[in-house]
Design a protein around this nucleic acid. Sequence first.
DNA 1: ACGAAGCCCTGCAAGC
DNA 2: TGCTTGCAGGGCTTCG
Length: 271
Amino acid sequence: MPELPEVETTRAGIEPHVIGQRVSRVIVRNAQLRYPVPDALARQMSGQSIEAVSRRGKYLLLKTAPGTAMIHLGMSGSLRMVDADLAPEKHDHVDIVLASGKCLRLHDPRRFGSVLWEAGDVTQHKLLASLGPEPLSDEFDLDYLFRDSRKKTQAVKLFVMDSHRVVGVGNIYANEALFMAGIRPTVPAGKISRKRYQVLVRCIKQVLIAAIEQGGTTLKDFVDGSGKPGYFQQKLKVYGRAGEPCEACGAAIKHIKLGQRATYYCPSCQS
DNA sequence: ACGAAGCCCTGCAAGC
DNA sequence: TGCTTGCAGGGCTTCG
């Protein structure tokens, strides 16, 4: 599932192909994604030039003069640049066709993703306005996270995965960052010392930066912006490794559910 | 106001 | 072999 590094990789991958390009038309084959794809997308985006490709959390933002397309890949979505005349396959729900003859094609088997249109200030869109800071920004630091954590009984893993606190820390990287920080995912957020939060903040940033640098990780659904499969998994130390020996100490990696989500940790290294 | 649970969806894997 | 069942999961919504 695309996490922040995959979305960033996609953004960087498509950017050179779409910047300054005129949208000749938008084809919506299946509007039934997480939210219905609004008619305004095709109506208002057609004929416009794409001025910028940015990202807020896991939302990709394609800016044009009359508004901004907001694309979320959900957990099985991918965006590829393909020739506009390439026959669409199953689950290819939306094409943003460019005057260059290429098109930006959204593929999303599970349809947890979304394509929305915001005519006004996109940062004020309901889905973006209340998001927490970017994890790689200076705003996301020790003081911010520590202050927010006091008296919280919520498990620290769920605490850092809440996008209203900080965006972009998805399940895989939450597991990995907590392993790196030596913190057990189940510990109440309010019980963790300032010193340990210092380590955690650093680990979250480090894990995300490393993943972005290697071109994003991926599961089998992910295809990067230029159409090449991403690589993945070899670097994960706990996620998906239930029962396998911990790289650091050899203890068997544990697998539990936390907030309905698969959670992995080393019972010896993480406390 | 907060925390926990529910829900959306398809593909794949495991179990019978 | 062919069914059924369970699981994966981001993140908004609803419930308690």
